[in-house]
Simulated scan of single mutants.
Amino acid sequence: MAYLVLLVGVLAVSTASIFIRFAQSEVPSLVIATYRMALAGLLLAPAALWRGKQAQTSLEPAEKRQVLLAGVLLAFHFASWIASLELTSVVNSVVLVTTAPLWVAAASPVLLKEPVSGNAFIGLGLALVGGVLVGLSSICSITAGGFGCQEMGDFFQGKAALGNLLALMGAWFSAGYLVVGRRVRKKLHLMTYTFRVYGMAGLTLLVVTLFFGLVLNASSGTNVAELLFDYSPISFVWMILLALIPQLVGHTAFNWSLAYLPAAFVSVALLGEPVGSTILAILFLHESPTLLQFIGAGFILAGILLASRQTAE
Results as ranks from 00 to 15, higher is better:
Ala12Val: 13
Ser17Gln: 05
Ser17His: 08
Glu26His: 15
Val27Arg: 08
Val27His: 10
Arg36Tyr: 02
Gly41Pro: 05
Gly41Cys: 02
Ala45Met: 13
Gly52Cys: 07
Ala75Pro: 03
Ser89Cys: 01
Val90Asp: 07
Asn92Pro: 01
Val94Leu: 01
Leu112His: 11
Phe121Gln: 13
Gly125Ile: 04
Leu128Asn: 05
Gly130Tyr: 00
Thr143Lys: 13
Ala144Ile: 09
Ala144Pro: 06
Gly145Trp: 08
Cys149His: 05
Ala161Ser: 10
Leu168Ile: 12
Trp172Gly: 15
Val184Lys: 03
Met191Gly: 14
Val197Met: 14
Tyr198Thr: 04
Met200Cys: 09
Thr204Lys: 01
Val207Trp: 02
Leu210Glu: 08
Phe211Val: 10
Val215His: 14
Leu216Ala: 09
Ser219Asp: 11
Ser219Thr: 11
Ser220Ala: 14
Gly221Trp: 00
Ala225Phe: 09
Leu227Tyr: 12
Leu227Met: 11
Leu228Ser: 01
Phe229Gly: 09
Ser232Cys: 12
Ile234Thr: 14
Phe236Glu: 03
Met239Ala: 03
Ile245Asp: 13
His251Lys: 04
Ala259Gln: 13
Leu261Val: 15
Leu261Phe: 09
Pro262Met: 04
Val266Asp: 07
Gly272Gln: 09
Gly276Asp: 05
Leu292Val: 08
Leu292Arg: 02
Gln293Ser: 13
Ile295Thr: 04
Gly298Phe: 00
Ile300Gly: 05
Leu306Phe: 12
Ala312Pro: 06
Glu313Thr: 13
